[in-house]
């Protein structure tokens, strides 16, 4: 949905522009912001609002700067709707590579791909399966999957030694509200019973907070890319917390050319790299790399498929 230079409003529906009225535009803004722009300053400065159901609406308009930094936006002129669909079970074929051979330990795994190839969808399902217990996660993934939520006291008796059957304590640092898609504090995506979510918090601070406060077995975070993220991941490794993360890179070699990722890889912070691509279509796992030896663990690319397709982001 956008506004042209002439002030005409249009709705781009399946690639076709459709004119819409000023009232429709105002109604769309009202519905997306719930008439509460003041409550969405952080979201507007990030450029998107997460709606109930995990759907995301990208918003751009006039930037409001404060001290040279983007504080919020006003006079919104374009919206981009991304309809969320979970894909429970999409990580089924990857889980054996994410867990140690005896299934009692989670290996530090970095998911790499270009934009829009399903990193976050895969990360979310890995988090769900680890939280629910791998086999149990697979069962619930193909079922209805209800009641996402954060770990409660009754769920916390499971330690690192638990593993496949009973699941791991998963700490999700969801800086951009993409993994859990929290709306008003409630995760909109199924993340299993042992997942604790810190929403909208910068990764480095969130990782440290999660380690100190929730003692997770596994930390899950999206799009590592800054120096402070690398330091926080190093700290997590020192604390014995496994990390599953994503990053923008085409493969480990491309990642090694990027300063921050090179630093992270040089520290040996990750055991596995999962490379996503589209050689067999969207959601193809191109490679699974053992980072210490550089050996490819998967013989050939394979499709990551979900038995019960609910997910992924679609424009």
């Amino acid at each position: 949905m956008g506004v042209t230079a002439g002030g005409d409003l249009y709705l781009c529906c399946a690639g076709q522009p459709v004119a819409c009225t000023e009232e429709e535009w105002s109604a769309a803004v009202r519905l997306v912001t719930q008439c509460s722009v003041y409550a969405l300053e952080r979201e507007l400065s990030a450029g998107f609002v997460t709606l109930a159901g995990g759907h995301r609406v990208g918003l751009v308009g006039r930037a409001v700067l404060e001290g040279g930094e983007l504080r919020t936006q006003s006079e919104l002129s374009s919206m981009n709707y991304r309809v969320a669909r979970e894909m429970p079970g999409v990580a089924d074929r990857l889980m054996p590579y994410v867990l140690s051979t005896d299934r009692t330990r989670v290996l530090n795994t970095l998911i790499l791909s270009g934009p829009g190839l399903g990193k976050t969808t895969l990360l979310r399902d890995i988090a769900r399966q680890l939280s629910a217990g791998w086999e149990r996660g697979r069962e619930s993934g193909t079922g209805s999957g209800t009641g996402s939520g954060t770990g409660s006291g009754s769920n916390r008796e499971c330690g690192s030694e638990c593993g496949v059957g009973s699941g791991f304590r998963v700490g999700i640092v969801d800086e951009r509200s993409e993994i859990a898609a929290c709306s008003q504090g409630v995760p909109q995506n199924e993340l299993g019973p042992r997942a604790d979510v810190i929403d909208g918090c910068p990764k480095a601070a969130g990782i440290m907070m999660m380690i100190r406060s929730m003692s997770p077995d596994v930390l899950v975070t999206d799009e590592v890319g800054r120096h402070e993220d690398a330091n926080a991941l190093e700290e997590a490794a020192r604390c014995g917390v496994a990390v599953i993360a994503t990053a923008h890179a085409l493969d480990p070699e491309d990642a090694a050319r990027r300063p921050v990722l090179r630093e992270v890889l040089a520290q040996g912070a990750f055991d596995r790299a999962v490379v996503l691509g589209r050689s067999l279509g969207l959601g193809t796992c191109e490679r699974i790399v053992h980072l210490r030896s550089g050996q490819d663990l998967a013989a050939r690319p394979f499709r990551l498929e979900s038995a019960a397709r609910i997910g992924g982001m679609r424009r």
């Binding site: 912001t33 719930q34 008439c35 722009v37 003041y38 300053e41 409001v64």
Partner: peptide
């Protein structure tokens, strides 16, 4: 109401 930031 609801159209601007909290201070406004």
């Amino acid at each position: 109401l609801g159209t601007s930031d909290a201070a406004d």
